[in-house]
Computed example of a mutant assay.
Amino acid sequence: MILGEYSTPEALKNMHHTLGLDLPLWEQFVRFMKTLFTQGDTGNSIIMGTSARELIMQRAPITLLLILIACVLAIITALLLATVAATHKDKLLDHLIRIFPAITLGMPIFWVGILLILLFSVRLGWFPVGGVGEGFTGTLRSLALPAITVAFSQIPTLVRSLRAQMLEVLESDFVVTLRAAGIPSRVILFKHVLRNSALPTLMLLGVNISYLIGGTLVVEQVFGIKGIGSLLFTSISNRDFPVIQGIALYCALSVVIISLLIEIISWWLDPRTKGKQ
């Protein structure tokens, strides 16, 4: 692949020696693991000839920013919708919000992105069709629609989970006691109900992080964003295995780190841990 279709046997032999492919498999594996743990690298790109780690790090900031914005949008939207639904149980607003997850769960994420482009970029002209603008404001404006698209795939499950948990907490004995003590409903809702209801939903968000990252990579292709997603698809089409390995490794590492952070936040929010070291 590096030398081309019409390479000579001598050139192939020299390339095998350069890449270490003439070594025993165990020695190749040891060299690969040593490079992985000492340099955080999976090798050089077959197509570009540069370090896979450097290629990924060049694209990582825009992808991480997109994931962060999408997470914030998903959490804020889910909190608002679930709170409204739980406080208006079996009323019109509750029914409308409960229908929303049932409809949106069947929408492919790339299709949602295309619809948003047609509506807000092509017809209304509020946002750019694709790419990333210059400067902080231009970047945020360019990432608005992609972030909404990614968040759109996470909101339904979060709303459904948080609404169910809030209804359960609202009917618990300690909430009845707080109401009997004359504590305002707003204080009970935001200080006690949401805090106790958020834990299972937060754990669900941690489970969905891997899907969130995967959805981001697809959305980058739809909106023409030169992040890790576009690098991944280019590497797959060119069979650039070191870069594909590197992206898979760093995505897996990101899932582990984010899941650990969510575990820590859950421990901090859990009222049962208060007073403990």
Score class of each variant (00 low, 15 high):
3 L>D: 09
4 G>M: 09
5 E>C: 03
9 P>K: 12
15 M>H: 07
17 H>F: 03
18 T>Q: 11
19 L>A: 02
22 D>T: 05
24 P>I: 03
24 P>H: 07
26 W>Y: 14
26 W>E: 04
26 W>A: 13
30 V>F: 15
35 T>G: 14
38 T>H: 01
39 Q>I: 07
39 Q>Y: 09
42 T>V: 07
44 N>E: 08
44 N>H: 11
45 S>I: 03
49 G>E: 15
49 G>W: 10
50 T>Q: 12
55 L>C: 06
55 L>D: 02
58 Q>P: 06
58 Q>R: 13
59 R>W: 02
62 I>L: 05
67 I>L: 14
74 A>M: 07
75 I>V: 15
75 I>D: 00
76 I>H: 05
77 T>N: 08
78 A>E: 11
80 L>P: 00
81 L>H: 06
82 A>E: 08
89 K>F: 11
91 K>W: 06
94 D>V: 09
97 I>K: 03
98 R>V: 13
103 I>N: 05
103 I>L: 15
105 L>P: 01
106 G>H: 04
107 M>Q: 08
107 M>L: 15
110 F>L: 10
110 F>I: 10
116 L>N: 08
117 I>K: 02
119 L>V: 14
123 R>M: 12
123 R>N: 14
128 P>M: 13
129 V>Y: 11
132 V>R: 00
135 G>E: 12
136 F>R: 07
141 R>P: 00
144 A>Y: 08
146 P>E: 02
146 P>T: 04
146 P>M: 05
154 Q>N: 10
157 T>C: 11
158 L>C: 01
160 R>I: 06
161 S>P: 00
162 L>R: 01
163 R>N: 15
164 A>E: 12
165 Q>W: 04
167 L>G: 09
167 L>Q: 14
167 L>N: 15
168 E>R: 13
172 S>D: 10
175 V>C: 01
176 V>P: 00
177 T>P: 00
179 R>F: 01
183 I>K: 09
183 I>H: 08
185 S>E: 14
185 S>A: 13
187 V>Y: 08
189 L>I: 14
192 H>N: 11
193 V>E: 01
196 N>S: 07
196 N>W: 08
197 S>D: 07
198 A>I: 15
198 A>D: 08
201 T>A: 11
203 M>A: 12
208 N>I: 14
208 N>M: 15
213 I>L: 15
214 G>I: 12
216 T>W: 03
216 T>Y: 07
218 V>A: 03
218 V>K: 01
218 V>P: 09
219 V>Y: 11
220 E>F: 04
220 E>N: 03
220 E>L: 08
222 V>E: 08
223 F>H: 07
223 F>E: 04
225 I>Q: 03
225 I>G: 07
227 G>N: 05
228 I>W: 00
234 T>K: 00
236 I>K: 10
238 N>K: 12
239 R>W: 02
239 R>S: 11
241 F>I: 14
242 P>V: 05
244 I>E: 09
246 G>N: 08
250 Y>M: 10
252 A>P: 15
252 A>D: 10
254 S>W: 06
261 L>E: 11
262 I>F: 04
263 E>R: 12
264 I>Y: 07
267 W>K: 14
268 W>V: 13
268 W>K: 14
274 K>G: 02
275 G>K: 09
277 Q>H: 13
